[in-house]
Computed example of a mutant assay.
Amino acid sequence: MAIVDPDAHQVLFENEHVRVIQARASHGWKSAMHAHQPMVVVNLGSGRQKVTFGDGTTQIIDLNPGAVVWQETAFEHAWELLAGEVNVVLVEVKSASAANDKEIGR
């Protein structure tokens, strides 16, 4: 799977079960629209993002060091860093995506 914004996203590890990505960016960075599998997000930096989802809705998200979030479903989004920095580790769980696809009959 290709990485959008290779200047901000780096694949640290990948196998048949997970893909681990580190995303780093400074104030003012804007990412293109892209998608993620279900994942765990571990925030290492402090900042504020404006996130635009695939359906056009937006949300302001504060990035707090040490915060850990589980994202249950795959999703599409773009983001703009309004303040601070982005420094997150994303662990996409491929088996969670496969399980979701099975549940909804894909």
Results as ranks from 00 to 15, higher is better:
61 I>R: 12
61 I>G: 00
62 D>F: 01
62 D>G: 01
62 D>C: 00
62 D>V: 00
63 L>I: 03
64 N>H: 10
64 N>D: 08
65 P>S: 04
65 P>Y: 08
65 P>N: 06
66 G>R: 14
66 G>N: 13
67 A>T: 10
67 A>Q: 14
67 A>E: 15
67 A>Y: 07
68 V>F: 13
68 V>I: 15
68 V>L: 11
69 V>M: 04
70 W>N: 06
71 Q>R: 15
71 Q>T: 07
72 E>C: 03
72 E>T: 13
72 E>L: 12
73 T>V: 10
73 T>A: 11
74 A>C: 05
75 F>P: 04
75 F>I: 04
76 E>T: 12
76 E>K: 13
78 A>V: 05
78 A>P: 11
78 A>Y: 10
79 W>Q: 11
81 L>I: 09
81 L>P: 07
81 L>S: 03
82 L>V: 05
82 L>M: 11
83 A>K: 14
83 A>D: 15
84 G>M: 10
84 G>N: 11
86 V>D: 05
88 V>M: 04
88 V>L: 06
88 V>T: 08
88 V>A: 03
88 V>E: 10
88 V>Y: 01
88 V>H: 05
88 V>N: 09
89 V>A: 00
89 V>S: 01
89 V>G: 00
89 V>Q: 02
89 V>R: 01
90 L>Y: 05
91 V>Q: 08
91 V>G: 04
91 V>L: 12
93 V>A: 06
93 V>R: 02
93 V>N: 06
94 K>H: 13
95 S>M: 00
96 A>L: 07
97 S>M: 06
97 S>G: 06
98 A>C: 00
98 A>I: 02
98 A>E: 12
99 A>T: 03
99 A>L: 12
100 N>A: 14
100 N>V: 07
100 N>W: 15
100 N>S: 12
101 D>L: 12
102 K>S: 01
102 K>E: 03
103 E>I: 12
103 E>R: 15
103 E>W: 14
